[in-house]
């Protein structure tokens, strides 16, 4: 019950204005009531389409966005509404690795300055920064001479490693990795995930990993949560979710994962239409207009978050409906 990070019913809203100069002001919930726990030393994967609120949720945890409702507790301490001055020291414990590896590195700083920047920001002037830089480069498996290079002189995979070194400089407890492998080649992706796994074992890190690559989630995470329109639609132990998906959206995601085998028998579920706009959330079950198994009451009745027997939970009136009806 003592999770490192407890997220409870969190909403993140953004103000929007309707068309034209006189348009009405309103707000949209990019994250709309998400609850999840991340335990020490464990990895939690968040999967979902772009626009499903994954990154916004991560930014709410790190204080980069303000959560409008709910509670985000780190070791029991409430992070929501924490003033910036009090948040800053916590940023040595909760760190974020950003999506764009090269874009998140300042082009005018050397790798040495980039990876030792956290020490300067946290006012640790007594540290020997050259020694720290060399330790960090060694930790992520980069050669020492990289310290003097600039971001444009390194490859995308190496830039990711610099990102890891910088994030882990202050020995954090919780690492939030936003798409840590997007755009990487498969072999470099493997290196990156192995590096994260090794550092997790060595440092006892908890990791929250955001991705839309299910192959990544399957290998590195303990628990996985599937997000759709700013809500979790399914959550459970990773192996369980992969073996027995409950929600049709999870099933569609799993089925949409092409296998590197031209003869693989594919169970394909093509979702109808586009993800709906969060400006006009669908009534009832928010997935109903794209669900291949939609039933009459899905249009009006909102499904509740309910536990399944196998340790997971989901938000669907008819979990595993494809099994009962043998539609597949």
């Amino acid at each position: 019950m003592n999770a490192l990070l407890e997220i409870e019913d969190v909403f993140v809203s953004f103000g929007v204005r309707g068309k034209g100069l006189t348009g009405k002001r309103g707000s949209i919930d990019a994250v709309s009531g998400v609850s999840l726990n991340i335990e020490q030393g464990k990895t939690y994967g968040i999967v979902g389409e772009s626009g499903s609120g994954k990154t916004t949720l991560a930014q709410a945890v790190t204080g980069l966005h303000h959560a409008s409702e709910g509670s985000i507790r780190y070791r029991g301490q409430e992070l929501r509404d924490l003033p910036e001055a009090k948040f800053r020291p916590l940023r040595s414990e909760i760190v974020m690795m950003f999506q764009d590896p090269i874009g998140s590195l300042s082009p005018r700083l050397t790798i040495r300055s980039l990876i030792t920047e956290p020490f300067r920001i946290q006012g640790m002037k007594d540290r020997d920064l050259d020694a720290e830089a060399s330790r960090l480069l060694k930790m992520v498996g980069l050669p020492q001479e990289f310290a003097n290079r600039y971001p444009y002189q390194i490859s995308g995979g190496q830039a990711r490693r610099v990102g890891v070194a910088r994030a882990l400089a202050l020995e954090p407890k919780l690492l939030i990795a936003d798409e840590p492998t997007a755009g990487l080649d498969v072999s470099v992706q493997g290196e990156m995930l192995n590096l994260l796994a090794r550092l997790q074992d060595e440092l006892g890190l908890a990791i929250m990993i955001i991705t839309h690559n299910l192959n990544v989630v399957r290998h590195i995470t303990d628990t996985v949560g599937i997000m759709y329109l700013g809500k979790l639609v399914e959550e459970g132990p990773t192996e369980e979710v992969f073996a027995n998906p409950q929600h049709p959206y999870t099933l569609a995601l799993l089925a949409a994962n092409p296998e590197p085998d031209p003869d693989a028998k594919l169970m394909r579920i093509e979702l109808k239409g586009e993800p709906p706009s969060i400006l006009q959330r669908p009534s009832g079950c928010e997935f109903h207009n794209r669900c291949p198994f939609v039933q009459a009451n899905c249009h009006q009745d909102v499904p509740q978050w309910s536990n399944s027997e196998l340790g997971g939970a989901h938000r669907c009136h008819y979990p595993q409906i494809w099994k009962n009806n043998q539609v597949v």
Partner: peptide, 18 residues
């Protein structure tokens, strides 16, 4: 390259081939 593709690896592993 084919071996590295995590889509090929069905069992959970913490050490992916590279």
């Amino acid at each position: 390259l084919l071996k590295c593709d995590p889509g090929h690896i069905k069992e959970k592993t913490r050490n992916l081939p590279t």
